[in-house]
Design a protein around this nucleic acid. Structure first.
Lengths: 340, 340
DNA sequence: TTGTAAGCGTTATCAA
DNA sequence: TTGATAACGCTTACAA
């Protein structure tokens, strides 16, 4: 099976030089006759030589490897984040260990140990929700960047989404489209993310001298079903509602369904804004959903970039960096139909 | 920043023994006085010693690392697969490099090179669709397992989903629920996956002496919108249809929406079966979708297990191993309501 | 029972 | 311009 892989020594022998020369030739270091360098390069190619990165890492102390520890790789959350991480890391030939803790502290600890042993250059710890967590138990000296969930140690660096800003974005857009009776249906009140989104909405409504339709934020679950039920409740409390901002695209789907059942047109009678920009959910909706994109890909990119900074020894201040959200415009907030 | 990490030498010094003794003590090898072993272990713990896995790998030729090369980490596909892979690998302290090619051959080649250099123990190449692809261009001798997309080299090993079987499952279930006028709406005809699902359905209908409602398979796109449009077409062609098997949960969502618009009850008038068991789509549907689960987690588990076999030198025959699908029962195929 | 030393595949230093 | 040689941190014969 496992045939012998050529080493610098093999290349050296074939090129008729010493191993030191091979190393210099292949890494463009030191002074070498051009002819020699060419001969070495040729020999290396002929043998299909690939430098053993373990040996390189052992010698250099750098592994060109970072790990992403995530509590959930399911669904909408982890994927755009990973994309952004790879955007930033890919250029540098940095490879990514993916570690899923499945929300289990034991697993996390286990992974942290393994990563220590593997001498990764840095670690990105990604949480699913905005909350404070204990710092990762890893060898001191290894750079760590926290994503979304931030470390309880204020000297740690964290990058996160702008949920308040997302709420503001949605609210301003609805006001600009001429809506004034805006309701809000979202996830569990015990989580910070939905509370921040609601805060963003409220701040805009306050400045405009408007009240929340239905007189309250409808906190509930992250499900379509909650969207359906809450929409009933909201419309019961405030039948003249002309817009609903939803804390997730899933909730928005449920809301839209209820509206359709009630023969209310979207956006004709009621405009709907979602949150997440979870493509299959938002684009598949009828009508397609205008929704706040939390910019997770950019979050990932920023996290990885800062991590590279730290690895390179460039100072990165502790604290939280917030990445702005943006609004994906689709039809659910389109201009009111003529005659509506 | 980067403080010095303790080595065997440090542990040896602290325990007052030699490095060789440390190694033996920590790895339970050779004959050692129990007292000495304990002293070494204590010293190691006090120093927070973690063996450098690069050095271990260099020396042993094993890195306890495998890579998963995937063409798309988006959405429903990659996540359950990765879960299964980690199920099988986790026990062994094997870490996973995640490489996303973004469907770009250049990127794939680039990743293959890097993985060669890193001396990964094995590689899982995951495609999104059932098709034949060129073998991964990697150093000979490195075990590779293909997932879903199979290698054109018949001596390579591939594990894949049972789409024919999935179609059979759906069909039998519908027949068993008393449906006889079954239509089929699915994805693009140019892909093998939807064709196989259709073949499974047809085989069952044939044996039962039944025809496909609407007289044809409705091939189209993997979108809700296609589901909506195709449902109209199907009902136009065959108004007495009493069940629709859909090639994806997204399509099924669209179908269900059209049925609701037409005041047709699901499952009362028409039963609907989806494909994928993509939780948020299928469970969020009203009514929740009965759907074929292609068992991707198991596919991942099998792939990783076979890869470990190959790495361990246990022979694994080339060819394709098919993992059975199963049916997730929800309400969209429930018993007909009384009086319907 | 323990210590010494060679070797894994690189890179880097210093001589030649 | 090139070649020896010593690290890097570990495991493992083999010697003590």
């Amino acid at each position: 099976m496992s045939q012998r892989v050529p080493t610098v020594r093999d290349v050296a022998a074939r090129a008729g030089v010493s191993v030191g020369t091979v190393s210099k030739a292949l890494n463009n270091r030191g002074q070498l006759r051009e002819e020699t360098r060419a001969r070495v390069v040729a020999a290396a190619r002929e043998l299909g030589f690939r430098p053993n990165s373990l040996a390189q890492g052992l010698q250099s102390g750098r592994t060109y490897t970072v790990a992403v520890i995530t509590t959930d790789r399911f669904g909408r959350f982890g994927n755009p984040l990973m994309l952004g991480v790879e955007d930033a890391l890919g250029a540098d030939r940095v490879s990514v260990f993916l570690c899923d803790t499945r929300d289990d502290p034991i697993r996390e600890h286990h992974h942290a140990e393994t990563l220590d042993e593997r001498r990764v250059d840095g670690i990105i710890v990604a949480g699913r929700r905005k909350q404070t967590r204990a710092p990762l138990a890893v060898a001191s000296g290894v750079p760590v960047v926290y994503v979304i969930a931030q470390s309880s140690d204020p000297s740690d660096f964290c990058v996160t989404t702008d949920d308040v800003g997302g709420g503001v974005l949605a609210a301003r857009h609805l006001l600009a489209s001429g809506r004034t009776r805006i309701g809000h249906i979202t996830g569990p009140e015990r989580f910070a993310d939905p509370r921040e989104r609601a805060a963003g909405l409220s701040s805009v409504l306050d400045s405009a001298g408007l009240d929340l339709a239905g007189g309250q934020v409808f906190y509930g679950e992250w499900s379509e079903d909650w969207g359906r039920r809450a929409a009933e409740m909201l419309l019961h409390a405030a039948p003249d509602t002309d817009a609903i901002f939803c804390g997730s695209d899933q909730i928005a789907r449920g809301v839209v369904e209820t509206l359709r059942d009630r023969r209310l047109r979207v956006p004709g009678d009621i405009a709907v804004v979602g949150f997440d920009n979870w493509e299959p959910m938002a684009a598949g909706c009828r009508p397609p959903l205008t929704t706040v994109d939390p910019n997770l890909r950019e979050v990932g990119r920023v996290a990885a970039t800062r991590l590279l900074d730290m690895i390179a020894g460039r100072p990165v201040e502790g604290g939280v960096e917030t990445v702005p959200a943006w609004l994906m415009l689709r039809e659910s907030t389109g201009v009111r139909e003529a005659g509506a």
